[in-house]
Design a protein around this nucleic acid. Structure first.
Lengths: 344, 344
DNA sequence: ACCGCTTCTTGACTCGTTTCAACTGTCGAA
DNA sequence: TTCGACAGTTGAAACGAGTCAAGAAGCGGT
């Protein structure tokens, strides 16, 4: 029962295997009566197509893999959602692989995916070292779309969000509200996103006389380090203390918010806070958090569409680098104008 | 270059395909010199095994599927993590499928997985209607492990967490802190978890004289409905207002917390709050949230282990139903004793 | 020179599907 | 009566890897 092949079905229906295959793949080629008989045989036998055999014949599978840095990160789960939505009615299946920021795991996944001859890979690579492995994939004929990493080389498509612009948006907003001493709480500057967001903010701040952007570089982008950063900011002498904090992600921002609340500093009255990513809980925080939102689903959807394009274009495909614009969502945590008197 | 088979390798190395296969699968059978030659051929050709062909021959794949209700839900991502950890060194690969609570999507996934002859399926089914489909899978020889759903029928293994106990833990805790008027904020009672948690709490409350559990049934388990529930609770006449709220999940609890804060009610002073699930942000809320924690990774890990067991046991496998115990994590939101004077 | 033994190596066959050239009927037109 | 056209149907030949009975080669002993 577990192993019923097309051959069994053919025997049962009194036709050849070719006909069964036709019923399955080009039903209109088969006479209605025959088709009926075959379908009955299929259902009484409980026959289920064997995908391995199909793939072997076809030379490739119909699955698309999404390799993410962290399955539990809402950013990536939304990207996956978008990709799924785009591929839903193309007959392909999406499988999600979790590299967990571990190069070895990523490698293992890519090896396995190549053995599976997947149709294509959407990936946020762990580091630049992945590039050699990805080049190999591409040379072996498996299209690769980079997600949230601008492609340095031009031999692949990519989708990303403009982090520099995100930094500019946040800084512009805070400057408009009258803030002149602004803190940037970030993670390791080795992370491109962290550095880019800083660069954008710094560029805008530099254009404003008397405005200063003070950098706090934390070891990781977590709530705990957010609290620590909050301490450092709050400990500054009142006359030099930043009146606003822009954080590289929302977890840091929530940490900062907690610490301010703990110390009885009012948000946004004493300190305004802007986060980044607009995670689900940003709006649900004690003081709803302003945040730079990225079009996450769109990112996944577009990546998938680029992939479909690349597959169907074949040889004459031109790789594209798509860059999306983030949007600032202003909520209570930064929504007050600093009275001029508060300066200096 | 894209299509290199074992045959190419054999030609290149001047051996037969059988020998190449042996190098790949039982290297010790091959003389070192030959092995070396084959390995060189493999690397100069950039040969990559074709998994479809292997699977076709083997009769089944080496992947295990996890079908979850919602990829973005931390509960499930942790379950996936656990399963991955357990299967990491078994040579199997984990793929994640997202049913998104949609029976049709779930069906499509299961169909596809069966065609792929996956080694096994860990699934939290959308509803009881899935059972027929799952029975079919099992009859076709694919082991199914139910996650977070007690198995009604005995033809499959399952892992779950005791939600009734979770309700008891929360209620016991609140009663011990002196609360007698307790609210249960839940979602649709059609959801087994919601009903079970209520049942547990109700049972304990019923044992305590003068204690009352008031039910607030919201349409969904979201922060927004948490706020709404918070309004209802707070609007009660002070003499009848609950002094504690037990929520069916943390999102509801965060909503309640927000609403209380908005109205200037002190948590836990005026109202104590206990949530459920212990999501990442529970501890990071404005007032750190007490919550009933489930051993999520353990759930996934155990499910995977049951699967591995079932595969290796073969015919003589006895299905098991594993039930884990949740744990109450007490944090600030419920951590104060109600003074007796506050009663009535 | 032959035997028995071990150590490698071979290649035809198998897995289940798709494909496609070839075949069988049937019908209408010339 | 023969011919082509057409609609269905057939079955052998792939696809790539794993298996295993059988064979080859080497070696020591008699």
């Amino acid at each position: 029962m577990a192993t019923n092949s097309i051959k069994e079905v053919a025997r049962r229906a009194g036709v050849s295997i070719g006909t069964v295959s036709n019923v399955l793949n080009r039903p209109d080629l088969v006479a209605p009566a025959t088709r009926q008989r075959v379908l009955e045989a299929i259902s009484t036998l409980g026959y289920v197509r064997n995908d391995s055999a199909r793939q072997l014949r076809a030379g490739h599978s119909r699955t698309v893999a999404v390799v993410v840095l962290d399955v539990s990160n809402p950013f990536f789960t939304d990207v996956v959602r978008g990709a799924e939505a785009a591929l839903d009615d193309s007959g392909s299946m999406v499988i999600v692989c979790n590299s967990d920021e571990d190069p070895a795991r990523e490698r293992r996944h890519l090896d396995h995916l190549e053995e599976q001859r997947v149709r294509g890979v959407l990936i946020t690579p762990v580091d630049d070292g992945s590039n050699a492995r990805l080049d190999l994939l591409i040379r072996h004929g498996i299209p690769v779309i980079l997600v949230d990493r601008g492609a340095r080389t031009r031999n692949r498509c990519s989708v990303a969000v403009d982090d520099v612009l995100g930094g500019r948006l946040a800084a512009t907003h805070l400057l408009e509200r009258g803030h002149r001493r602004i803190a940037y709480v970030g993670g390791p500057m080795g992370i491109a996103q962290v550095a880019d967001r800083h660069a954008g903010a710094a560029a805008i701040v530099a254009e404003t006389p008397q405005a200063k952007l003070q950098l706090f570089e934390m070891p990781a982008l977590t709530t705990a380090y957010g609290r620590k950063a909050g301490e450092q900011v709050a400990d500054a002498a009142p006359s030099r203390r930043p009146t606003a904090v822009f954080c590289a992600n929302d977890l840091l921002a929530l940490g900062v918010l907690q610490e301010m609340t703990r110390r009885g500093l009012k948000v946004p009255g004493d300190i305004a806070i802007v986060g980044y990513d607009d995670i689900e809980y940003a709006g649900a925080a004690a003081v709803p958090l302003s945040s730079v939102a990225q079009p996450r689903e769109l990112l996944g959807r577009t990546a998938a569409e680029l992939l479909v394009g690349e597959i169907s274009d074949g040889e004459l495909h031109r790789h594209r680098q798509v860059l999306f614009e983030p949007e600032l969502v202003v909520r209570e945590s930064s929504d007050s104008t600093l009275s001029p008197s508060r300066h200096r």
